[in-house]
Design a protein around this nucleic acid. Sequence first.
DNA 1: AAATGGGGCGCC
DNA 2: AAAGGGCGCCCCATTT
Length: 693
Amino acid sequence: MKFPSDDYEHYVPPAKPSKEFPDDFGFVLVDSMEDFIRILKDNKDVDYVAWDLETTGLNPEENSIVALALAFHNKNNKVGYCVPINFNKGPSLHYDALALFYKFLRKYKKRSLLYNARFDMRFMEIYGFDMDKISVYDVMLGIWLADTNVKFPSLSASARHFLGWEMQEYDSVLGDDYNLWYVAPKEVTFYAGSDALATLHLAKHSFRYLKEAKLAGKIDNRILYPLMKFEDDPLRIDVKYLGGLLDEYTNRQSELEKEIHIMAGYDFNINSSRQLVEVMMQLGLNTGKYTKTGQMQTSLPVLEKLEGQNNHPFLEKLMEYKRINKSLGSYIKPLTQYAKESKQYCESTGDGYLRFAYHNTVAPTGRFACGSEDKNSYFSKINKQSIPKPSERIWYVAPTDEPSEEVSLNEHNIEGYKFSTERISEDAVEAFSPEANVRRGFIPYDDFYWVSVDFSKQELLIPTNITQEPIWKTAFKEGKDLHSETALKIFGEVDKHKRALAKTCNFGLAYGMSHHTLAERFDMPVNEAEKFVEDFKGTLKELFSWMERHKRKAKREGVVYTSFGRPRRLKYYFEHESPQVRAFGYRSAVNSVIQGTGADIMKMALVKLWDNLLNVDEYRDDVRFASMVHDEANFYVRKSKLLEILPKIIDCMELKFPQWELPMEVDVEIGNSWGFCFPFDFKDGVLTPKLED
DNA sequence: AAATGGGGCGCC
DNA sequence: AAAGGGCGCCCCATTT
């Protein structure tokens, strides 16, 4: 089932269609600098200015600004201006008008109201205007916070919903023209002016919900500029390496394809689940699981399960094919291709550069989503937050005098230590295996390390702080293994299986996992799983008592908040006629708080990093933000400055909150690429490999 | 040819 | 009656 479904009702009831708009409003084409100067002068005392750029397209590297739309928060709020910047025909005020407007914003300290602010800020920066010096409020944020279940609320949808305005469609402005540059400015005036007016009029609705979201709302707006800068800086990609991986995988894929076809007795498309089901039926391979459309499931988990019962060689080959095919199609091929197509690609060095877009108004819990923007080649069409992690293996560690570098895929020198897959010592750490290592394609600049810092056990620490669960709190305080401690308290003893059970439940509870799933996972009888879950709940009393209270409160109020005020409206789900949808509501009530609080904390850490490190002249040449994956932040750090920069990163991320007993802790990994990072302990200014127990 | 829905799978 | 939260992309099959 899709959540929210198509008939989803917005938390805020829709406004009645407005009779005012557009008849009571004025739309003015500003066709001379004199007029523009006069208009700005007349409005030099207003506090807010809503503005919006019309461009020839979405890509700031390839497209240009054609018009600036404006609406001032003055007495009537009813005039939308269109300032033509650069059109094919008709008046154009060019760069001068933009510069004048920027000066106006700076000099009179205007607060800018933008809708999807990073888009306009990015174009302004490319035109040479420093947007860090401008006070900006993104109206879209509060509109989204009004109901975060609604993803990326567009300006036109929001104007319709909150104001009852019907906006002109972009395609009707464009007509048969290629882009807005070809359209006559007077034809763009209404479209542009109403965008700015809608932004202005939406602002008062938006502020209400932003304010309600307290610190989380503030952070969402505060992070806009750094987030834009993070997106603008492309990541360095090792195209030669990925090209090698591409060849290797392609060969293996066609080998497997041949073997599978031979076993089937004829050629077929393995990627077609229909054809695959047909073949499996003929081979007598039934997974016993079906999709809701009635087709037999052929996913990896059910294949794995079937392999446990039926050791048919077809299954092994099929599973390997699926993994290889996924890796190739979703990651290796597109990464290689986009990096080669990138403007900064250098064939001799094999360096390519890719940008990744982060979406801040998509995931209802407040996490960032990561992916492409439709038809915008500025960003690569890859989800940076889902690049495969290679399997893990043991690496041996010994001190070395050799310089820090990647010696080979099996040997890496980092900060005076050699990490090798060969047994060179007794000391060992666990890290990614050299095989199938897509992340090795992400490399820092020469003379820089790839530094990865992630929040330690974030999804367990947060509920511990919120619920005060004593067993977990003690385990955290004493630095003990949380899963073993939980298992010990339940069973009175611990072994590998008992710890694994406890671990699955520990993580599963945040998602509202049922005992049926647990039974399935561990291949145990349902009643046994049920008994275990009962014991589990009885052991972690405080945790589950909080969960019950929290769910009741959520049902009563129809909304839950993260520890920092981010709302998730669940009324629609709680009141739905379908028990499945209602159950989804209760699971989301718990999960939104845990996942959302984690997202709030990462955003706060990023803002702190920006203010104290990344945007500070003193450190600018020595550290750069590379990427983030929910609870992990990655940096390029100059090797010679590592011991100076690393403590600052850690300090920014190990946040303490007065209402929480346990502070955030981080784990540090250092390497010469994202694929070969090794865990280090950092104490008293000294780095030592974090050895296996 | 482009859009859409479903199944599948990568990450946290 | 179903049974695990959040995301985006690939591929197939079908519709427009």
